[in-house]
């Protein structure tokens, strides 16, 4: 396999003497889809920020290929309502032409939000706008911090398939944080189960059987398994029912 886009070697992040991330060694290769799962407070967002170069490891090293372009979607924006800015103006900050902006909005099925003020977006809408903007930057690596947050269950499947398709259309690698392994299993190459340190990692079907994973997130997996849903139709991004003939 060729050299990874990005690699951590024994990287730790300490805050006031406490380890938020401990001894992480992992690598992300071109066109690889990596999903990070773990309980609250496991350091998932910190890991994304570490990969994005927003924080430096206290110990260990981060290696990136030269001129790596990164598209990053935070969980939310720090700006408040005092900044009037429409979705379109926000996308224009990515230096993209009008046509490209409209194409991405259409791809994410949020064309109707083009002139909406950013602060009026719901959580799920914001995630799609952030994703559209990240795509406009034509990154080699997408770092997505809970991109499915606030998106309803049915919309999640569709958005997730779209993220997975970006690997081919953008030729980029994806690292994303998710709560639900089963949701992302189908398209993920590697799952990292995180709880300050890497509990286990590997192919999703292996991780889902791994004792460390079951110990950490097993209850959640069990509850989900009780309910089997027979889906006789599909949903679009807004959760509307789409029947196939």
């Amino acid at each position: 396999m060729s050299a990874p886009l990005l690699a951590l070697s024994e990287a730790s992040v300490l805050r006031q003497g406490r380890a938020i991330l401990k001894d992480l060694t992992l690598s992300v290769h071109a066109k690889e889809i990596v999903t990070v799962i773990g309980p609250n407070g496991a350091g998932k967002s910190t890991l994304i920020k570490l990969l994005a170069g927003l924080i430096l490891p206290s110990v260990g090293a981060v290696q990136r290929v030269a001129n790596l372009t990164i598209g990053y979607t935070p969980q939310r924006l720090s700006s408040d309502k005092s900044l009037p800015i429409t979705v379109d103006r926000f996308l224009r900050l990515a230096n993209a032409c009008g046509r490209a902006r409209r194409d991405q909005l259409q791809r994410l099925r949020i064309s109707h939000l083009e002139q909406q003020q950013m602060h009026k977006l719901s959580g799920g809408e914001l995630q799609r706008v952030l994703l559209a903007r990240a795509i406009l930057l034509k990154p080699q690596l997408l770092l997505l911090d809970e991109p499915l947050q606030g998106v309803d269950i049915a919309g999640q499947q569709e958005l997730y398939r779209l993220i997975a398709s970006l690997r081919d259309s953008l030729n980029c690698a994806v690292v994303m944080v998710s709560h639900d392994l089963h949701m992302v299993m189908a398209q993920t190459d590697t799952v990292i189960c995180l709880n300050q340190h890497v509990c286990c990692h590997g192919k999703p079907e292996n991780v889902s059987q791994h004792p460390e994973y079951l110990k950490l997130l097993g209850n959640q997996a069990g509850e989900l398994a009780l309910y089997t849903h027979r889906h006789d139709h599909q949903h679009d991004l807004h959760g509307d029912v789409v029947h196939h003939d």
Partner: peptide, 12 residues
């Protein structure tokens, strides 16, 4: 971009 989100700005 800095006032929209400093972290987004930095990554870009």
């Amino acid at each position: 971009l800095l006032v929209v989100d400093p972290e987004l700005a930095k990554v870009e």
